[in-house]
Amino acid sequence: MTDAIKAVLILLCLLQFKHMFADYFLQTPKMLAGRATYFHMGRAQHAGVHAVGSALALVIVGTSLPLLLFLIVAEWIVHFHIDWGKASYSDAKAYTPAQAGFWRAAGFDQALHQLTYIAMVWAWVEWP
């Protein structure tokens, strides 16, 4: 295995652990309540936790400062909007965890976050 492939796998693993902690361990009641409102400070803070965690992962793999800043700002924006979309959709449908639609929305949300990490790693590999 080449060093480049090892670095990509390390970065992907770091982003996976970051995502797990930011989404499932570090959310506060403020971050979870009222998420269908677009201008929601809790969602902004939640996206910020993700951006900080990604910054740490990117620093570990030796990312340049310009790329690091670009990626964490982009992730903040994308994460904010993915979560808003899921919350808006789920609230409009009045889904609860007892309904399949709730889990489809959650799964789609998580898939979009994972695709975000693939895009981030792709940018990390391709950045001059």
Score class of each variant (00 low, 15 high):
Gln99Val: 04
Leu14Glu: 00
Leu71Gln: 06
Ala51Ser: 15
His50Ala: 06
Phe80Gln: 08
Ile118Pro: 06
Gln45Trp: 13
Phe108Met: 15
Ser64Thr: 15
Ala106Asp: 14
Leu56Cys: 12
Ser88Gly: 15
Ala100His: 12
Ile82Gln: 04
His19Lys: 01
Val59Asp: 03
Ala55Trp: 06
Ala123Pro: 06
Ala123Phe: 09
Leu14His: 03
Ala22Asn: 14
Ser90Phe: 07
Ala74Asp: 13
Ala57His: 04
Leu15Met: 14
Glu126Cys: 13
Gly48Gln: 03
Phe108Cys: 11
Thr63Arg: 00
Gly85Asn: 07
Met120Asn: 04
Leu112Gln: 12
Tyr38Asn: 08
Leu71Thr: 00
Gly85Tyr: 05
Lys86Pro: 10
His81Lys: 13
Ala105Ser: 13
Gly42Val: 03
Ser54Gly: 11
Phe21Tyr: 10
Trp84Cys: 05
Phe17Glu: 04
Ile5Ser: 09
Met41Pro: 12
Ala87Asp: 06
Ala98Cys: 01
Leu68Cys: 06
Pro128Thr: 01
Leu68Asn: 00
Lys30Ile: 12
Asp23Ala: 07
Glu126Phe: 13
Trp84Lys: 07
Pro66Lys: 07
Tyr89Ile: 11
Thr96Cys: 07
His81Ala: 08
Thr2Phe: 05
Phe108Val: 15
Ala51Met: 03
Asp83Leu: 01
Val73Glu: 10
Leu12Thr: 01
Pro29Ala: 03
Phe102Val: 11
Ala106Gln: 14
Val61Arg: 01
Trp103Thr: 00
Gln99Ala: 09
Ala4Thr: 14
Asp91Leu: 02
Lys18Ser: 12
